[in-house]
């Protein structure tokens, strides 16, 4: 999962178009078992089961969200206790300066706010999604086509085997090129 964007410029790619999700899944599974290097798969919606078919590692983004939430919780408590009990203690209706149970609502809101914003921010950065970003988009892939892209790491790449594999799963078309992404 890590090495997505690190390929060199002279790497060539072979891409196959599919019409149906089932064919794409089967082709991806077979490509992986046959030892092809799967560059990426492009789909119009999140296809379930593709993580396993591609052999992707689980993302650590959920842990980042958790850590961000913990940070938000800490900041929320710190802000309230410091302002209310240390920086300028105010007597409000005889309540203790550090009236912890009354700080829970704001602490909770800040936990959620930090966790959500940081998780989405990291997601966009990790996927290199930002304003004005331009990328090659395979034809109709945001509509109804599925594309499986194999990397050709060296001369040992067997194009005929790859094409036969695609054909075995009702591929619609196969194209070759460099720098797909």
């Amino acid at each position: 999962m890590r090495a997505t964007n690190n390929h060199t410029n002279n790497t060539r790619f072979t891409a196959a178009y599919f019409k149906r999700e089932e064919d794409l899944l089967a082709a991806t599974r077979e490509a992986r078992t046959k030892g092809f290097a799967i560059h990426d798969v492009y789909t119009p919606y999140a296809v379930h089961g593709l993580d396993e078919a591609m052999g992707l590692q689980r993302t650590r983004l959920a842990w980042i969200a958790f850590a961000a939430g913990a940070f938000g919780l800490f900041c929320g408590l710190l802000l309230q206790i410091w302002t209310s009990a240390y920086d300028w203690p105010l007597n409000v209706g005889g309540k203790p300066f550090n009236s912890f149970p009354l700080f829970i609502p704001v602490t909770f809101e800040l936990t959620v706010l930090f966790s959500g914003l940081i998780a989405i921010g990291v997601l966009f950065l990790r996927n290199r999604l930002w304003l004005f970003k331009r990328r090659r988009v395979f034809e109709r892939v945001t509509d109804d086509r599925f594309v499986l892209v194999l990397r050709q790491p060296d001369a040992s790449f067997d194009a005929e085997r790859a094409v036969a594999l695609f054909a075995g799963h009702q591929a619609l078309n196969v194209i070759e090129g460099d720098e797909f992404v």
């Binding site: 959920a62 969200a65 990328r135």
Partner: peptide, 18 residues
């Protein structure tokens, strides 16, 4: 710059659930 990459979709789904 969304292009439907499944590597992106995979993380996207995780964050959506979070």
């Amino acid at each position: 710059g969304w292009n439907g990459s499944h590597r992106t979709w995979s993380r996207y789904e995780t964050v959506y659930t979070v």
